[in-house]
Amino acid sequence: MQWTSILAIYFLFLVFSAFVLLPFGVRTHEEAGVEKIPGQAESAPVNFRPGLLILRAAVLAAVATAAYVSNYIYGWITAQDLIFWGPTVR
């Protein structure tokens, strides 16, 4: 596998991980006991930290990319293993 392919796969895992991790650790103003600004949405986060989100997503993406590349090299799970019904061709 070329390094550019690994980089592209890492980027895809990074974006996916960021969206998956987005709702975790965020509290609303009501949960934090802080006054809201007039006109502010009820669900607006009080403690949104994008740097921490990207750091967590980068670590998760690195682990997922390492697992993906390792599976590509060693062939632990193949396309044949993902056929759960129908005729088995071995």
Rank of each mutant, 00 (worst) to 15 (best):
G75D: 10
A58L: 01
A66C: 12
V59F: 00
L60V: 12
A62W: 01
W76E: 12
W85N: 09
I83H: 05
A67W: 07
T65Y: 00
A66T: 02
Y74F: 13
A67I: 15
Y68T: 15
Q80S: 11
A67P: 13
S70N: 10
V59H: 00
W85D: 10
V69R: 07
N71T: 13
R56P: 05
Q80T: 13
F84I: 15
N71L: 13
I77T: 11
A79C: 10
G86Q: 00
N71F: 08
A66K: 05
A62F: 00
A57I: 04
S70E: 09
A79S: 11
Y72A: 13
L60K: 07
G75Y: 06
A57T: 09
G86M: 08
I54N: 06
L60F: 03
T78I: 10
R56A: 06
W85L: 14
T65S: 02
R56M: 08
A79W: 11
R56N: 07
V59E: 00
W85C: 09
A61R: 01
G75A: 10
L55K: 08
G86S: 06
T65E: 00
V63M: 04
A61I: 06
L82C: 09
I83V: 13
V59S: 03
Y72F: 12
V69Y: 04
T78M: 10
F84K: 13
Y74M: 14
R56F: 06
A79L: 14
V63N: 03
Q80K: 14
Y72I: 14
R56V: 04
N71S: 08
W76F: 15
L82G: 06
N71D: 15
L60I: 01
I77K: 08
T78A: 09
I73F: 05
I54G: 04
W76L: 15
V63D: 02
L55P: 01
I54K: 06
W76R: 12
T78N: 10
A67C: 13
A57C: 03
A58P: 02
W85T: 14
Y68D: 13
T65W: 00
I77D: 03
I73S: 05
W76T: 14
A64P: 01
S70I: 12
L55F: 04
A61L: 04
F84H: 10
R56D: 03
A79G: 10
Y68P: 15
A62C: 01
A66D: 03
S70L: 14
I77E: 01
Y74G: 08
A64Q: 02
Y72C: 12
T78Y: 06
Y72Q: 14
A57V: 06
Q80Y: 08
V63I: 08
L82H: 04
V59T: 02
W85E: 12
Y74H: 11
Y72D: 14
I73D: 04
A58Y: 00
I83N: 05
I77P: 03
R56T: 05
A62L: 05
Q80H: 10
A57D: 03
S70K: 11
I54M: 10
I73R: 08
I83M: 07
V69C: 04
A61Q: 00
A57P: 04
W85Q: 11
V63A: 06
F84G: 09
Y74V: 15
W85M: 12
I77Y: 03
A61E: 01
N71A: 09
L55G: 03
I77H: 04
Q80I: 14
